[in-house]
Design a protein around this nucleic acid. Structure first.
Lengths: 212, 212
DNA sequence: TCAGGAGTTGAATCCTGGTTCAGGTTTCAG
DNA sequence: CTGAAACCTGAACCAGGATTCAACTCCTGA
């Protein structure tokens, strides 16, 4: 349950991976297991998902799983970190490529919705981490929010957005995007993503107040 | 905490309750179990929560639990439905009391944050239902969103808000509120709620676009 | 060529905790 | 008062599934 004794040079890092593979063969197996775990947890959720089934999907024995991870929770945590990274890596470039922050907001949401539609499993895993690994979940959103707040503040410096409370705004916009992702990415993928992004963009840019 | 069965007139539904209590004594026990379940699930979450502990908290035998509910999932579902109602019953009056929709938005968020801060357990239960009872979770948010959309559209009729995509706006604002609730209600209750609500209100009302 | 570390295997172990059940006790209509 | 329905009780049962482990096989460096 606790960290492996790991008699050799104590590895300070490696929070979730019990042991790094030493050979190409090992790295390949680890990857198989990680991918299988993503499938399994994505499809059945953490508690319904089983190690035996992960091993089966990966085409390895149960014991091999424990060569790379200390526990069920450990794989899950590794997955969350990995997918958190994936989302950002997919979305951020679109934001940066846009001419200004507000256009970036729109492009980012479009990219995000696209990503969610093609990675519904991932979405579920990050969400479920709130209950399996609170700290990992929290870290994910706090990281995103901080990046967001900073980005907004810089945009303010360039005169692209109005002044305001950056943290609150960051959390608000993030929540907006997450829920739109849930609604129009996971649950209802009928409407084109640009349409959603356009509507959301209009809201974020000008608000609800009637024109004067 | 929970809704009293109230009407002795036969409730047509009873999906989750296996059997309605017939006597005052039974109603009292059901109430004890329901409240105990809210505490237990709120504190430990669905999967960590145990029936034995719920029974203990309620001060009844395990068997009594099964007199009123068919399974662990059944109590959970009953709770979700009940709390979904509670949130709305607490927040809606504040929105209605406001002079116009935008002011209502602000009052509603303030009330919501207040509620979350004093009912963190409840918050967790509704959130976790996404994985235990997807349909119940979905129903909760779809209901809220629909109410929201309708309300916004009516406000538009009165000239209080601009025209736009009501559904997208409803989901966006809902997500915004939920995340602000998570951040400033559950995780970080240091800042005064009005402050948060004011900042969010500014965003919803006028958006991020710089003044022209 | 060969030792031994890296990796693999999957049946067996173990434990948690939901659910059942065979009686008792209480309530209340008639 | 009285009997049956409504309730209550908690030990025992049992399934599911995470984790362990002792015995292989594979690979590489000397």
């Amino acid at each position: 349950m606790t960290a492996t004794p790991q008699t050799s040079a104590e590895t300070p890092h490696t929070e979730s991976r019990s042991k790094e593979p030493r050979t190409a063969r090992g790295r390949k197996t680890l990857r198989l297991i990680l991918d299988a775990a993503a499938e399994e947890f994505g499809a059945r959720g953490y508690h319904e998902g089983s190690i035996a089934r992960i091993a089966q999907r990966a085409g390895v024995a149960i014991g091999s799983f424990y060569t790379y991870f200390d526990s069920k929770e450990a794989v899950f945590r590794a997955l969350v970190a990995d997918m958190s990274r994936q989302v950002r890596e997919h979305v951020v470039p679109f934001i940066l490529a846009a001419p200004d922050r507000l256009a970036g907001e729109r492009a980012g949401l479009t990219a995000y919705l696209d990503f969610v539609r093609t990675h519904k499993a991932l979405y579920r895993i990050i969400d479920e981490s709130a209950f399996v690994a609170e700290d990992a979940y929290r870290r994910h959103y706090v990281d995103v929010a901080d990046g967001y707040a900073t980005s907004l503040e810089q945009a303010f410096g360039r005169g692209e957005v109005s002044d305001g409370d950056w943290q609150v705004r960051a959390w608000a916009i993030m929540g907006m995007n997450v829920f739109l992702g849930l609604k129009y990415g996971v649950w209802d993928d009928g409407r084109p993503v640009d349409e959603i992004a356009a509507a959301a963009h209009a809201l974020i840019a000008d608000g609800l107040a009637p024109p004067r």
